[in-house]
Simulated scan of single mutants.
Amino acid sequence: MKHKLLASFCLLASVTLTGCQTTQTPYEVSSSLTYKKGKPLSSYHLGVTEEKVNDQIYHVTVKLTGTSSIVRAKDMFYLHAANLALSHNFEKFVIEKRKSGKWCYGTETRYTKQRSTSEAGPRYSGFVLLIHDKKQVASKQKVQIAKNIKKIAQPRVEATIDEASMIKNEERYLNACDKIN
């Protein structure tokens, strides 16, 4: 209990003193690469990473600071999928192999092997298949209309949340990562 109380106090103090912890990762493409299977999550930067598989398929990963939520990561993923479709003259897209969760960075002491988490946050990834019509996909796949998704996701991504919610989000991710370490 003392550990959690001390960690919460330190987090609150760092937010108060620096102010840098209370910002969310902006929607922007941090990397645009060629897809390589098996790339470790630690190699992705904060923000949106798009990896081109071919002219119609992209692997998109959204990795945000702990002040954000998994809902915002998902909205940012869908917004980017819609923007990809529209910028490549496609009206629709399908999402395949979605994954959501958290990412954790920490340190491990050399002698005791005790780990501590220094950074954590939400992540969301998947493959975006750009299509012109439903005939290009299997019947089970849900076809998304890019302009409609953009209208829904963009305001959500651009919305600001209060400082207390950001602090609560960050505590949640740090605590979740400490439990698995």
Rank of each mutant, 00 (worst) to 15 (best):
T25H: 02
T25L: 03
T25C: 04
T25V: 06
P26L: 10
P26N: 07
P26M: 14
P26K: 10
P26T: 12
P26G: 10
Y27H: 11
Y27D: 11
Y27E: 09
Y27V: 11
E28A: 12
E28N: 10
E28T: 10
V29A: 09
V29L: 08
V29Q: 03
S30C: 05
S30V: 07
S30D: 04
S30L: 03
S31C: 05
S31G: 04
S31L: 04
S31R: 11
S31M: 11
S31N: 15
S32L: 05
S32A: 09
S32Y: 12
L33V: 05
L33C: 05
L33R: 06
L33T: 14
L33Y: 03
L33W: 01
L33D: 03
T34R: 14
T34E: 13
T34C: 09
T34F: 05
T34W: 05
Y35W: 01
Y35S: 01
Y35E: 00
Y35C: 00
K36S: 05
K36W: 05
K36V: 09
K36F: 13
K36I: 14
K36G: 04
K37I: 12
K37G: 09
G38L: 07
G38C: 15
K39L: 11
P40D: 08
P40H: 06
P40A: 10
P40S: 13
P40W: 12
P40I: 10
P40T: 10
P40F: 14
L41T: 14
L41S: 07
L41N: 10
L41F: 13
L41Y: 07
L41I: 08
L41K: 13
L41D: 08
S42M: 10
S42G: 11
S42L: 11
S42Q: 13
S42P: 15
S42I: 13
S43F: 05
S43A: 11
S43V: 12
S43N: 15
S43L: 14
Y44I: 02
Y44L: 02
Y44F: 08
Y44D: 00
H45N: 14
H45I: 02
H45K: 09
H45Q: 06
H45F: 14
L46G: 08
L46T: 15
L46S: 12
G47V: 07
G47R: 03
G47D: 14
G47Q: 10
G47N: 04
G47H: 06
V48M: 10
V48Q: 03
V48I: 15
V48D: 04
T49F: 02
T49Y: 01
E50Y: 05
E50D: 11
E50A: 05
E50L: 06
E50P: 00
E50M: 03
E51Y: 01
E51D: 05
E51N: 05
E51G: 01
K52R: 10
K52L: 08
K52N: 06
V53H: 00
V53W: 00
N54P: 00
N54T: 02
N54S: 02
N54A: 02
